[in-house]
Design a protein around this nucleic acid. Structure first.
Length: 418
DNA sequence: TTAGGGTTATCG
DNA sequence: CGATAACCCTAA
């Protein structure tokens, strides 16, 4: 069994090699993945995904998602506003993901795909971004691009202009610039760094050594113990007395300094929401069958088989935090009373009689915010009553705590008041 | 997936 | 304690 620390170093090394994707995949499958992945590894996996998109070259909703996830990772790691190159790459990719439908038009297509893309990407996804915590990605360039896309909807001349522009090259260049910058900022892979240090140590104290594995091991151990390099590699699993979930905390910890004061009491709740939002997005990306603003059917259809590069690197196993358990008196170790499973499944695994009374667990009642209400109102105006699933998918961030049924129920309540 | 009836939690 | 919002169940 490999030390998780070592696994992380190897994973990082492998992912940052210019090897072919399939080769990296093979290696990834062969290695035991540390759970949870450290923020550094998550970022490396996302960067690798970007670089894979660049080399194919194929920019899609997946590229957009990778950029969004990187921003989210950095935000939860306490970084300030996203770098200019990240925001620029995001804007350029968003433009490319829209305008390519103008280039790819078939004869019987009257631009519906383009209009659909503008709605999906700019009316839903980018609009959501602007209102969310990820607003740092909402650069002036993105604002200008949105204006242009909206104009293109009504003005055929603008559409023609867009068709003639090489937005693909612009986007590829922007992503390349960001990738180079990110690589530079990240420094060399830790394994390389370590190897270099060992070599130097070896060279500088060449005498009196027999070159045995034991001696090499000793040297490595001393290096590890003595190096104050941890700060730079703090994302890697750390054996220095920290708990195994330390990395997870780093990713999910909300930035309290920027937190809405009224929300501070829900820190733990936010913690969960933060991590779940990764899962939400990832599910969409890998789920071509659903109608969604974010997941693009064409994009997803291109993925022939699941691979780790398609796998959402920031997804994690769903688990309920203690505070999502309503009553503190229900401290049964049985996990089944923490989960509210869909009714059919619940029946299947129904427990012995004495447990059944504690089995059904309602979600915690949560008042609708005015943003949620306003978003729902506008979405119904735009998409009509009854398209609850679609509306939810148009605003994944805002409605991340609501089901389609919740939207429907809320609308029923809202119109009852009128 | 949605509609609509039912249930529960919360508030005045 | 009743009204109401939020949430649940299930037929179609």
């Amino acid at each position: 069994m490999l030390d998780p620390r070592i696994t992380s170093w190897i994973l990082e090394f492998v992912l940052r090699q210019p090897a072919e994707d399939w080769m990296a995949n093979e290696l990834l499958f062969a290695l035991p993945l540390p759970s949870p992945l450290s923020p550094r590894l998550k970022k490396i996996l996302l960067l690798r995904r970007l670089s894979s998109d660049l080399s194919r070259p194929s920019l899609s909703a997946r590229t957009l998602l990778s950029l969004e996830l990187i921003e989210e990772l950095e935000r939860y790691a306490g970084a300030g506003a996203p770098s200019n190159s990240l925001a620029a790459a995001y804007a350029a990719v968003a433009v490319e993901c829209t305008t390519r439908f103008l280039r790819e038009r078939s004869d019987d297509d009257h631009g519906e795909d383009f209009f659909d893309a503008v709605n999906r990407i700019w009316n839903c996804r980018v609009a959501d971004l602007e209102r969310s915590e990820a607003a740092g990605l909402f650069s002036p360039a993105l604002r200008e691009a949105r204006r242009e896309m909206e104009e293109a909807i009504v003005n055929p001349v603008v559409r023609v202009g867009l068709t003639g522009r090489d937005t693909k090259k612009a986007a590829l260049d922007a992503v390349r610039v960001y990738l180079e910058e990110a690589e530079k900022e990240m420094g060399p892979p830790y394994l390389e760094h370590l190897a270099k240090a060992v070599c130097e140590e070896w060279m500088s104290s060449g005498t009196g050594r027999d070159g045995s594995v034991v001696e090499l091991y000793e040297m490595l151990r001393n290096l590890l113990a003595s190096q104050g390099e941890r700060g730079r590699y703090e994302g890697l699993p750390d054996g220095a007395g920290k708990g195994p979930n330390n990395d997870d905390d780093a990713i999910a910890r909300p930035n309290l300094m920027n937190q809405d004061p009224s929300d501070l009491e829900h820190v733990e709740e936010n913690r969960e929401r933060a991590s779940l939002s990764f899962v939400d997005k990832g599910t969409k990306d890998g789920n071509p069958g659903t109608t969604t603003c974010v997941g693009d059917k064409r994009d997803c259809a291109g993925a022939p088989k699941p691979s780790l590069m398609d796998w959402n690197p920031t997804a994690r196993t769903f688990e309920w935090d203690e505070d999502s358990i309503e009553s503190p008196s229900e401290n049964s170790p049985d996990p089944s009373n923490k989960l509210h499973l869909p009714s059919a499944k619940r029946r299947e695994i129904s427990l012995p009689l004495e447990d059944n009374k504690t089995f059904v667990k309602r979600r915690r009642k949560k008042k609708w915010s005015s943003l949620e209400e306003e978003t729902l109102r506008k979405a119904v105006e735009r998409h009509g009553v009854g398209n609850w699933k679609f509306i939810k998918s148009c605003h994944p961030e805002i409605f991340k705590d609501r089901t389609e049924v919740d939207l429907k129920d809320k609308w029923r309540n809202m119109i009852r008041c009128i």
